[in-house]
Write a protein that binds this DNA or RNA. Structure first.
Length: 290
DNA sequence: ATGGCTCTGTCACAGAGA
């Protein structure tokens, strides 16, 4: 019987559906999130911008559906989480060397004023081992504008993450880095590249940071769109951008070579961006046959 | 079919998102 049980478990684990979704407040999105869990049935779901505290995460609905819920939140801003129904072990909150935004340096305040740095390490990275997969839910800093100190913070954050994850990349063959990277990998990932000439999200420095991650042996799993020919994952709430398909692909799935080889399908669920009370991001779904 | 945004914290807006 033990052999049979093991065989069943392995067969169940053969096909694994992972997904990432910036929900723009898990509290505001809870009805849509629960609805989507029932519909899409992901085995692992990485969330970003939960916008609540770790203790405040509304986990009951997901737990009733068989998910272990690992939140990593801080309150009003940021926050990530992992929901898994194939195990949740070795939880890592943030990463070694994760930088904090240095508010004092950012304001360029004269040192005479001795303004203390806020120095808070934001809730933007969460590593969880889900069965055979080592998964990271990431919410990369936005960067705001090219002349903002938040842009330097974004680049610093990405470099520190790359340095921290390089070690894991050698220890975990089945590594998946996924979430809101706040970078469009190529101009094809933007509805109008000309509009971004002086913006963040598209600069050579940011794209190099992505290339540095891929250099660890990771593959950009590009999802297929369900409509049009552009796999955008984000559309601004304003001006009917979604309905005009004026979007960006900034929610990414970076999978190690062994994982990438098992991908059977990947798509952007734009239906989750429709209707009443959506997030401004759509989920990215990746099916694996491990 | 459309609309010119939505979230939180705190109570009429400010701040952030990308």
């Amino acid at each position: 019987m033990a052999d049979r049980a093991t065989a069943t478990a392995c067969a169940t684990l053969g096909r694994v559906r992972i997904a990432t979704w910036n929900v723009n407040s898990v509290t505001a999105r809870l009805p849509r999130l629960i609805e989507w869990l029932d519909l899409a049935q992901p085995d692992v779901l990485c969330l970003q911008e939960i916008k609540t505290t770790t203790a405040g995460f509304p986990s009951q609905g997901a737990e009733q559906r068989g998910y272990e819920v690992i939140p990593h939140g801080e309150g009003r801003w940021n926050g990530v989480a992992v929901l898994s129904r194939i195990g949740a072990d070795d939880v890592t909150y943030g990463f070694p060397g994760q930088p904090a935004f240095d508010a004092a340096a950012a304001e360029d305040v004269p040192t005479l004023l001795d303004v203390p740095s806020t120095g808070v390490v934001e809730a933007r990275a969460l590593g969880v081992t889900c069965g055979p997969l080592r998964v990271w839910s990431l919410y990369v800093p936005n960067g705001r504008s090219l002349d903002s100190p938040h842009f330097g913070y974004k680049l610093q954050w990405l470099q520190a993450f790359r340095d921290a994850i390089a070690d894991e990349a050698t220890r975990h063959p089945n590594l998946v880095l996924t979430g809101d990277f706040n970078i469009a990998p190529t101009d094809a990932d933007l509805w109008d590249p000309a509009l971004f000439r002086t913006s963040t999200h598209v600069t050579p420095e940011e794209r190099q940071a992505l290339a540095d991650l891929r250099a660890l042996g990771l593959h950009d799993v590009i999802p297929r769109p369900l409509k049009y020919d552009t796999p955008y994952t984000y559309w601004d709430y304003r001006a009917g951008m979604f309905h005009k398909n004026m979007g960006m692909r900034i929610d990414l799935v970076y999978a190690s070579d062994p994982v990438a080889k098992t991908v059977t399908d990947a798509y952007v669920d734009r239906d989750a961006r429709k209707g009443k009370g959506p997030s401004d991001h759509a989920p990215v779904v990746v099916d694996l046959d491990l």
